[in-house]
Nucleic acid binder design. Sequence first.
DNA 1: CGTGAAACTTGAGGCTC
DNA 2: GAGCCTCAAGTTTCACG
Lengths: 159, 159
Amino acid sequence: MRLDEIDRRIVAQLLENGRASYAQIGTAVGLSAPAVKRRVDRLRADGVITGFSAVVDPAALGWTTEAFIEIFCTGATSPEEIYASIRNHPEVVAAYTVSGDASALVHVRARDIQHLEQALERLRREDNITATKTAIVLSRLIGRPTDSPERPGRPASRY
Amino acid sequence: MRLDEIDRRIVAQLLENGRASYAQIGTAVGLSAPAVKRRVDRLRADGVITGFSAVVDPAALGWTTEAFIEIFCTGATSPEEIYASIRNHPEVVAAYTVSGDASALVHVRARDIQHLEQALERLRREDNITATKTAIVLSRLIGRPTDSPERPGRPASRY
DNA sequence: CGTGAAACTTGAGGCTC
DNA sequence: GAGCCTCAAGTTTCACG
């Protein structure tokens, strides 16, 4: 599952434009379309590329409020238990167990502040969760689609 | 720029498979391929869909370490100044100004712990930044490609 | 990995409700 | 306004060299 330079460039192309044609990618990386397809198929089979997705502006769909919530649990709550506590909250966009004071950090998106408050109350009612600490997102400074293997920082998409 | 039910279903389809053909989406939502294309074109023009991207596993590209860093700045540091301080650090995947104690929250990805430490040191050398507080990601519990307008929680991709 | 041919998809015209 | 049909141009996908 080693990636060479061309593989990385193909991935970079597909990060930038997930609907680029194989011929288009091919001219960018100096390969024919079938050769690109074979590599993309291999990258998918190897789990390097896990899928393709539209990049959507949450605000345009009415999700204008965003927060990071530190979650504190009782003594030795396992990751599985934390997962069970948050999995059914649809507002949770991402969640991580982390080092430090908090047991987990969850990224939440809501339609508005009222919705956020409601989601937070619902989270706090979970048995394992003893406390929360919320940081509401005021502005997004940087947000990359995902990590390019070799792309430097791009300008922020503010909202 | 109002979205109807079909628009939302098209967006949901494209979040799930960004390379789906218009005909494919059409059968899923009950429209012909050209009708789907026109709606997708409109959704792009309206900024609801901002692009398409491959979904890549950072670990497969050698980015195995991840952290959230709270950044503390002197008194009244503006979002623009914070942005200027972090924009050139390629390890920064996302950054937000937030309510609460910290001035900003930045999401960082590094190749390994050594690289993370090095990135952190580099960040702390920025003039505006007076202190940082790092939470290293131990495991990812939930991570959705992005927010579907109506999709419930999906299982976590752990690593 | 490249070439070429078959099957499919895209994208733009005009037509209908 | 929004959808459907049709057709040329482009794209994907295969077997073969």
